[in-house]
Design a protein around this nucleic acid. Structure first.
Lengths: 262, 262
DNA sequence: TAGATTGTTAATCGATTAACAATC
DNA sequence: TAGATTGTTAATCGATTAACAATC
């Protein structure tokens, strides 16, 4: 078994009681009654990262205008987003970088480490496993799975933790043992739905899917997807529009005619 | 030079004249005056992929209900999305799978192959380079760049095309020579902005960024981003909410009290 | 013709922007 | 106090859903 003391420390159940962990978390949270909109939640990690960079550069205070610019959003949107968390700014002054970063981190749940299981250890899976931002943001890879017998058993060093690729049928066991909360699917498309079902059966409710497949899950499962081919195709659409625009200019413009870009 | 006859075939400028290529494309397009909303464009690649799978399975006709289910969207949304492309369905019958796939592909610009340059050949860059869905969707990797002298010069087999990792300062040259239209950034965060600027200076207007950094670009550059850490943090937020909900139930529920989930 | 299903319109919902009163 | 900047409200914009007339 490649499970280690550290990965076991992520357990949510046995050693730290659920009650104790829950109490520690509940001291935190946000403004009563205000549900944070999904669009805001998706931007909080960006704000957090940029604040972290500023903090590292010794910046102590930042106004919404400057922070918004650094995050690539409008100042109005930034302030509205932050207002869902509470009133952490000072009128006439701005936001305290370090403390705002802390409040966002707490809201995101990133202040508590989460265990991640990765299914699929091909090219993409290997890249993800060695991805630094993972561990930096409070995520720990506690299990790696693959169905290929040639890959199973392979030793993998995650930080200073030695893991070993396991067959997928050990997934439930490892999730229970480590208390992992997040599953990452990096298998080929045709295996993805079965893997997804296995993750859900193992108790995982938060899944990140890299396989180019539409997955069906129950409503209580949070499924996010990253689809490289889709992103490229969206870019291709815009490239084509560029060509079309150029065409229309050429087609409609007679010699000597002034061409004005719309 | 690792440039090949095939990669040169992607040229938009010299051999095929811009006019000829533009005319071929302009025979296509959609409903006059109707701009396709971004949300729709982002879904078209999914529809296209699912239709491709159905076609391969010998399905000839599909109604919006079934196609929507397979794509994980509502039937109303699917029909509205498709209506931006034109009227390709038949009332009382449904859509012809193969021809709908063709119309979507044409709209997306996927029917024409696009050259892609990849900057950053670390773990993620390598995974992307060997990613099959790339080539399958009409994208061809025509240049790979890295700043690490130990990586530069390394031979890479893309399909049956032998490429070689080049230093970043060859980028402009290769983009011009191959007619590449899309740039992919897979460098560390601190190098990303400089690489992005280099791509834009080389004439690239469609960029996919995997580096965990906010990039600034001119308004005419289409910049999309894929941020793995952000995705995980969004999942972590939902995990935390689960714990909080459980806490409130425990905190507010007295022994023997019925607990009803909201 | 009768049943099925599209394409479109109108209603709803959510996200973004603009503007400014509150307040440091 | 005067200037700066937040937090919030109202206006706008865009996306989704529901419903149904058109029509195969």
């Amino acid at each position: 078994m490649p499970l280690t003391r550290r990965s076991m420390g992520l357990t949510t159940g046995s050693s730290a009681t659920p009650g104790a962990r829950a109490r520690a978390l509940s001291e935190a949270p946000a403004v009563e009654g205000r549900e944070i909109p999904p669009a805001t939640i998706a931007r909080l990690p960006i704000y957090h990262r940029v604040l972290g960079t500023m903090d590292a550069q010794g910046v102590h205070t930042v106004c919404s205008d400057d922070l918004a610019r650094a995050c690539g959003v409008s100042a109005a949107m930034l302030r509205k987003d932050l207002s869902y968390l509470g009133s952490y700014g000072t009128r006439g002054v701005g936001y305290h970088v370090a403390s705002l970063a802390f409040h966002i981190s707490r809201e995101l749940g990133t202040s508590v480490p989460y265990g991640v299981v990765l299914v699929g250890f091909g090219n993409l899976g290997r890249a993800l496993a060695s991805y630094r931002a993972f561990a930096l943001r409070g995520f720990t890879l506690v299990g790696i799975f693959d169905s290929d017998p040639r890959t199973v058993g392979e030793p993998v060093l995650i930080g200073d933790e030695p893991l070993r690729v396991l067959p997928v049928d050990h997934l439930g066991e490892v999730v229970q043992f480590t208390g992992a909360r997040i599953g990452v699917i990096a298998t080929p498309a045709d295996a993805a739905q079965a893997v997804c079902d296995t993750l859900v059966a193992a108790g995982i409710r938060s899944i990140l899917n890299f396989a180019p497949a539409v997955l069906a899950v129950a409503a209580d499962v949070e499924l996010r997807k990253v689809d490289l081919a889709v992103e490229l195709q969206i870019l291709a659409f815009h490239e084509q529009r560029r060509v079309e625009e150029a065409t229309h200019l050429v087609a409609h413009a007679r010699p000597g005619m002034q061409v004005v870009h719309a």
